[in-house]
Design a protein around this nucleic acid. Sequence first.
RNA 1: GCUAAUGUGGCUCAGAGGUAGAGCAGCUCACUCGUAAUGAGCAGGCCGUGGGUUCGAUUCCCACCAUUAGCUCCA
Length: 651
Amino acid sequence: MKITLADGNIREYGEAKSAYDIAADIDPALARSAALALIDGEERDLRTMVEADARVEILTAEDARGLAAMRHSASHVLAQAVQELFPEAKLAIGPSIENGFYYDFEHRPFSREDLDALEARMKKIIKKGERIERFFLPREEAIEFFAQRQQPYKVELIRDLPLDAQISFYRQGDFVDLCAGPHLMNTKGIKAFKLISSSGAYWRGKSENAMLQRIYGTAFLEKEELDAYLAHLESIKTRDHNRLGRELELFTTVDVIGQGLPLIMPKGAKIIQTMQRWIEDEEERRGYVRTRTPFMAKSDLYKISGHWDHYREGMFVLGDPEKDREVFALRPMTCPFQYYIYKASQKSYRDLPIRYGETSTLFRNEDSGEMHGLTRVRQFTISEGHLVVRPDQMVEEFKGCLALAKYCLQTLGVEEDVRYRLSKWDPAHPEKYVGSAQVWEETQEHIRRILQDLDIDFFEEEADAAFYGPKVDIQARNVYGKEDTMITIQWDGVLAEQYDMYYIDHNGEKVRPYIIHRTAMGCYERTLAWLIEKYEGKFPTWLAPEQVRVLPISEKFLDYGHKVCAYLQERGILATVDGRSEKIGFKIREARKQKLPYMLVVGQKEEEEGQVSVRSRFLGDEGMRPLEDFTREILLEIAEKRIRQEAPAQD
RNA sequence: GCUAAUGUGGCUCAGAGGUAGAGCAGCUCACUCGUAAUGAGCAGGCCGUGGGUUCGAUUCCCACCAUUAGCUCCA
């Protein structure tokens, strides 16, 4: 048989060979560092026998796929260490994940001391250099194997496999695990690793199941890479909006006010105000009309929409449905309110499309463990809107919503940081959705084509649609890599029916319109969080709540400092004075900590009637200038230069 | 909702079953000062909240509230 190697060379063998043997034949050193084989492009275990002509590529842990195999083996070593130190622990599953690996155990919670002890034991196992071997058992024997060893989770896993399956096992020393692989050949191949943390995690990810204890770890080829990753984890904390946002006095929380109810402080409110004014003006330019609708409504409204039955847990209900004649609920969305505005007068086909926009405050009763900083809150404000359109206008209007979203992302400078998701229905559970399979598939195809027309890269995800239609979600990652929806644009061909909305077409007939639910930029709180992390607190000047801070170097110049501040503010620059007495060093440090451009007021040159003239110096700008030189343009230029210079490169 | 950790002056943190500590910030006085901390003094705390154990609890126990990490959830 002929084996084509990665470099294009061909080797011939008279008999079947394992990928590992082929690696050894190429170079024994390669075999020692091999982690994974690509056989005709497919990721396979090194032990895989190659029996016919094939392309074979040997990957080491330098390759991301090889690294994943190494981490997977590291998770097995962790499981072995747990078995040795805590024999009563039951094993669940242990895959490699994006930045490392985890393994789930049924056990009491692990402490940091436990993790340290496990790490030490893992080092021993690795040092011993156990061979990792693979073998297979028929299903019944495999069940028997784990039943004897009292590993109920493994038994459950095997029971879910096909009846005729040959069950794959890996063994290193005394430790045997159910596993499809792939794995390294020897535990020695696990180089630099670290156990990061432990926490609870539900068996099979279902909250009705038992809670297991998950241990997270990571592994790298080189110690330097591991150290760099651990340092990265530390450094991320300084960008975390939840920490930085509090440090910069953008928001705070108070326990007596409640979970998920942050207080947006003056500087945070200023940023949100700037964004809101900008969005509202932009929407107006794009033909939106504004509405203002109530924050609450009788339960009857939510009964029509179906929320009362399906979403009552998520709403704040005012009153007792058992006792009170009238029960209200705070609104979790604005849709029906704007529908009734549409319905308040009869519409002609000539009136459409109608684009309603509202800066809309919503209330959702999230579970207590879900709240997080500004990204997951119980009250938030979004640039919400509903477009009522004729079916023939749907594609064009949907594109318009995407264009607006794209414009917003560009203006905020975050266009490169998002992923577009086409959120589809779940064909396996049609009962969760309204409409036929055919309509769903057709609508999804419409959206797919729209995205392709606009040259937007996107990925597709099943079971993420709204019950009334598929949608495009624009996703962004926070510093920890978790993804949140920032913008959503939803295709709705069914709610108009539910709310009996119609327009009169040119034949004088009543026709159902289509509806687009959309946000221009999503939730302001979440967007603020995103921007804090994106810019590490160094906001673009147009968004900055404080564009420059005036620092009198001594109390003698305090009055002049105030005049400088007034002078700047008259010119549309958001300036403040740090009037604290003598501590110029502290004031500078404080301004830097808060990522602000600062201006030192160092002396008066002259003062004429109604005019201040002060020698000043500005961070990043060489030399002294008279105050009159600090026009808005120069300030913007210097401030933006500071951001470009100091902001770390985006990845 | 689940599994854990945490909660001490404005901030960062120490502490211990027996009257609450430090640094920074604040205030006062002195210094009148030139780009990352001038000196001295003063003031500031229901040790998250509520119960319990104890002669005595901020410390030990229980519950609750909040924050954080992870899981689940996000119509």
